[in-house]
């Protein structure tokens, strides 16, 4: 009896988990194949490049958000950080030929400060994450708009080296997706293979047990928010690099898009489950749908509606699968009666 159980539970759960990422991938493939069949220009070099460029920034934010959500928290302030950093770095480079690295560091530093504030409020004062980050969203956005005062950064004033970051490529691979993939792999590897990385999952899975196990809960939550802030800062600089022309409300309203990408990617909103790879795939899927609608000449107004439906579908299917798995695992326990 026991020989059968051994490995059975794992396989089942592993399959379901991997199936989560695989099913997004499958959805992507189907989407791309069908669209290409209808309109072959969809898979043109430029088309693919555009999708990856567009998805990069969202995926970057999704990676940071994943770290936060895994610990059973949420960061709604990311959109406003992107806006603030995009504008701030625009101001910084305006008319100067700044070193790209310096701009990146500045952007990430601003993001880190924002993330740190969120992290301190959530971890040390134990205020509900949704409320805190909603508050900082308002504050950061207000500060950004106040500072910008309707001003606009024009591509003409942005140094070429920075714009090159947004449109250039190495070995035919554009920088933006490259950066995103590197960050994703690094964070993913950390979360999966390092003892401290696993603690993020433990904290989200059962906070009380995490406390009894003596885990450094505050430090991990602080790290999650700071990472999310830093990546939002990075995304802000990349936003400027990609679009050149920036007004204060860059990435306005993106906080919910990011959460949507993360959830579609199989990260449980109640924490403890999911991977950055899934989240990044979720971002890619949401972006691809946008492009597909354009190519298929579907009224682009459907884009949001479809994204919303997809999100609902994703969490519903997840939930139903989860219930099945729990029930299956429970039935396995009946062996004790045998």
């Amino acid at each position: 009896m026991t020989a059968i159980t051994s490995g059975g539970g794992r396989r089942l759960v592993d399959t379901v988990l991997r199936a989560r990422e695989l099913s997004i991938l499958a959805a992507l493939v189907v989407l791309v194949v069908v669209t290409t069949a209808v309109n072959s220009s969809f898979l043109s070099d430029q088309g693919v490049k555009d999708i990856f460029l567009n998805a990069s920034i969202l995926a970057l934010l999704a990676v940071g958000q994943t770290m936060v959500v895994i610990t059973r928290n949420i960061d709604l302030s990311v959109g406003s950080v992107v806006g603030l950093v995009a504008f701030a770095s625009g101001k910084f480079v305006l008319g100067h030929d700044r070193n790209v690295l310096l701009v990146l560091i500045l952007g990430m530093a601003i993001g880190a400060v924002c993330g740190l504030v969120n992290g301190v409020l959530v971890s040390f004062f134990r205020v509900p994450a949704l409320v805190v980050t909603l508050g900082t969203l308002y504050v950061i956005q207000g500060a950004d708009y106040y500072w910008a005062h309707g001003q606009q950064i024009n591509a003409a004033d942005v140094p070429g080296s920075l714009l090159e970051l947004g449109s250039g490529s190495v070995l035919g691979i554009p920088y933006l997706p490259l950066i995103t993939v590197v960050v994703m792999l690094a964070v993913g590897h950390y979360l999966r293979s390092y003892p401290s990385g696993r603690e993020f999952y433990a904290i989200g899975s059962n906070p009380d047990a995490a406390r009894l196990a003596g885990l450094a809960i505050r430090r991990r939550i602080l790290t999650a928010y700071t990472t999310s802030g830093i990546l939002a800062g990075l995304a802000g600089v990349l936003w400027l690099a990609r679009f050149g022309t920036v007004v204060a409300d860059a990435a306005h309203g993106w906080e919910l898009r990011v959460v949507a990408a993360v959830v579609v990617g199989g990260v449980a909103i109640v924490g403890g489950l999911g991977s950055v790879y899934g989240a990044a795939l979720g971002a890619l899927l949401l972006t691809t749908i946008g492009s597909v609608l354009v190519v298929l000449k579907v009224n682009s107004f459907w884009q949001d509606a479809i994204a919303g439906l997809l999100l609902l579908l994703a969490i519903s299917v997840d939930r139903l699968l989860g219930l099945r798995v729990t029930r299956a695992l429970r039935r396995r326990n009946v062996r004790h009666g045998a």
Partner: peptide, 17 residues
């Protein structure tokens, strides 16, 4: 006081893998 989403082995060695 277990972490339901983690494996049995990880539960046992959490924090000192």
């Amino acid at each position: 006081t277990l972490f339901p989403d983690l494996s049995v082995a990880e539960n046992i060695f959490m924090g000192r893998q």
